[in-house]
Design a binder for these strands. Structure first.
Lengths: 191, 191
DNA sequence: CGACATATTGAGATCCATCAACCAATGTGG
DNA sequence: CCACATTGGTTGATGGATCTCAATATGTCG
């Protein structure tokens, strides 16, 4: 598995090393808000015109296919929640983003960030790093589906991200693993 | 399915609209080369320190898992071939890139492109657009694996990318579809 | 023509989905 | 505080999709 995590560290140090003006420009366009459990930060078919930096709590991104939920991403502290294609293309989103617990987020509107990028070039670099990180994260996720069985994928989460198991209902974990709740239940029983 | 293709168009017009200096800077660091069928543009464990713009021909990116080839991407005219994580992190690559036919490519070394980016800011924007495009392409590929059966994925290629069927051996197509050659053969027989 | 790569077909096994029944914990209205 | 609904999870039976191994067929190129 590619060490994508270390790239996250690099992004965080990059942010910390930003000059004062750029940093305060970022703060000026950020708003902090709190939402209850079960709140939709983004609904299906809406345009994702904000990015949500999770300060505290848990959220997830998913879409419906044949009435079945497919969870595409889970968000914890310090994660950046957006529907990537909807945000990038400013098109309606097939995915929605729902809070799993009460959450506090830092919100940056799409338009404001675009403007800030043209005034503060370092933010363009930041945007690139974030896109690169997301692409590598997706590559790893595809890699897992190619190479691992459902049981292996579950064990992977169990070992590398136990906080997921603890804070999220099994039905959501199952849909994140791409399997049915029943299969997940059987996998857990077998271990 | 998200209209990622239109974003490709946007990237191409962006390139065409670049100022003369930026364009010639790009050309100055590009080298055009030709390779025979079956040539490895990138071998496993090498660092991907070049990007290959396919001018003519077909190539593919794949890796081995349990001795089985998993094809992750197919390249045709005007596609950009890199092992994304290896290129971005400048780490050894798990994937290799092999030509499927004779190909002509335009090569840009990683280092030279990084330097060019700092001298010509528009290239930073270009780099961002390319990363965004790749991320959306990956999202769509994941989406297909989540929601479609092998038969549906094959039909999709058949209708939307018939050139793939015509120019690439079935064994490679099968590994690109994430199924065995036998299953692909049966799918084709059933239609 | 012969040889080697490419593709098809068959039989059996495996993984996982679906449908259905069931259980336990939690809430809620009366 | 109880009866009942709701949510979250387990268990069983069955079927479908796909894999694997093995045999056979079809190129295709020297």
């Amino acid at each position: 598995m590619i060490p994508v995590i270390s790239y996250l560290d690099k992004i965080h140090s990059f942010i910390e090393s930003l000059d004062h003006e750029t940093l305060s420009a970022l703060q000026n366009i950020s708003i902090e808000k709190s939402y209850p459990k079960g709140y939709f930060l983004l609904k299906q078919n809406e345009i994702c015109d904000k990015s949500y930096w999770i300060k505290n709590g848990v959220a997830r991104k998913y879409y419906l296919n044949d009435g079945k939920e497919i969870t595409t991403e889970l968000y914890f502290d310090n994660d950046l929640a957006v529907s990537f294609d909807s945000y990038t293309l400013q098109h309606p989103s097939r995915e929605c983003i729902e809070t799993v617990t009460n959450v506090t987020v830092s919100i940056i509107p799409y338009q404001k960030f675009q403007e800030a990028k043209s005034n503060y070039p370092a933010l363009l670099t930041l945007d690139l790093m974030l896109a690169e990180y997301y692409a590598m994260w997706l590559e790893n996720r595809l890699f897992q589906f190619y190479t691992q069985s459902a049981t292996e994928r579950y064990l992977d989460i169990l070992h590398k991200s136990p906080h997921i198991i603890q804070s999220i209902p099994l039905s959501v974990i199952a849909s994140y693993l791409g399997i049915s709740l029943e299969t997940l239940s059987r996998i857990r029983a077998r271990i």
